[in-house]
Design a protein around this nucleic acid. Structure first.
Lengths: 196, 196
DNA sequence: TCCACGAGAGAACGTACGTTCTCCGTCTTC
DNA sequence: GAAGACGGAGAACGTACGTTCTCTCGTGGA
């Protein structure tokens, strides 16, 4: 088996197991067994567990944001309304997946943040990138003044992270609908007058 | 040393260490050392680590909500404005504490939830209790129709949990101010007309 | 054909941790 | 004053895990 395929299989297995059960609850040997990659090659691809965790998080960041952006893009072309609100429709879809277990970055931050600055950095980068994406969506709404865009993005980010947290703990995807309604109110208020 | 004092000291030490570094990163022996309680008595007070974790979470739940309620109560008597918004002022104070490390329940849920149903239950109870408290605060605002109270409480809960998450990952207490402004907008909209 | 290299399987190593056990001193009670 | 119950200190035990090492086998080139 070649190096790149081993890497992919390792990351696939790591992502499934780490996300489902938490990082510390999964041993390297289980990842070896699940991926079919030998332990020797595992350590050739990732010289330590922390490296594997960081690669897992970085790849998940890219895929997660790409999935969101694709969803919003598709619905936008189909004329399904406000982009900033489509985010919450995607959240609903995500929350409804049977193996949804909250935000991998929040979970990893809570589990490892105290002892691993790189994990904190990746979590921070993920949230920053999401915030930038939201600002980009708000650019498409001309009624929102430029000076309110960052504030609005911050508010949406609060609703998104709150929805992820509550949905995972309560086990109820409907939270996304609730967050969407709150976002609608905030956007409407911002359209009407200064929102900050 | 008597049983009740040993229990208190163990819970104090456990709370400090578990909250600061995560549950799995702290060993029973460290709790013994930090509390000055012998290992034998530790296992008399808490027959397993999971029992200690659950007791830690349950006591923290009560103290956390009491601290919030006391803060809101005090400021209300001093005429400091809307109770539902005072919650966010308390969050700001909490986020500014030097050893703030996010929500103990979200963190524990992410770390242990997959393997421990009791931890999930405690986290859920904590959030449910907070929601009930918010509903109680909204009762004091006559302009909010009864049928919107639960929706409004859900929205506030989203902002609160979002603020806790973002503040801990970004390391920025100012998130509480942002959440407060969002809450102001939502409350104002709800006062003006149906908010759901 | 022989040799050198790489790869896989899994044993081995060191450590850490949850939990229990042992030993010893102390205090109570008759 | 003697005996036994109790508590503390820490050793011990079993296990799990991250990481490395060893052994073996297959392959490709001279």
């Amino acid at each position: 088996m070649e190096h790149t395929e081993a890497t992919t299989r390792l990351l696939d297995t790591a992502e499934t197991l780490f996300y489902q059960r938490g990082v510390q609850a999964v041993g390297m040997d289980e990842i070896r067994a699940g991926s079919g990659v030998s332990l020797k090659r595992l350590y050739q691809c990732f010289p330590s567990k922390e490296q594997l965790v960081l690669s897992y998080l970085r790849r998940r960041d890219q895929r997660w944001r790409a999935a969101l952006a694709d969803f919003v893009q598709e619905r936008t072309e189909a004329g399904s309304g406000e982009q900033a609100l489509l985010v919450f429709d995607w959240l609903y879809k995500w929350f409804s997946e049977p193996d949804f277990r909250g935000c991998a970055f929040i979970n990893s931050f809570g589990e490892l943040g105290a002892g691993s600055p790189p994990v904190v950095a990746v979590a921070r980068e993920h949230k920053d990138a999401l915030r930038d994406y939201l600002i980009g969506l708000l650019l498409r709404i001309p009624e929102i003044p430029a000076r309110d865009r960052e504030t609005m993005a911050d508010h949406l980010l609060l609703l998104i992270d709150g929805a992820i947290t509550v949905a995972s703990i309560a086990g109820n995807p409907g939270v996304a609908r609730s967050a969407r309604r709150a976002a609608e109110v905030l956007l409407a208020a911002c359209r009407g007058r200064a929102c900050a």
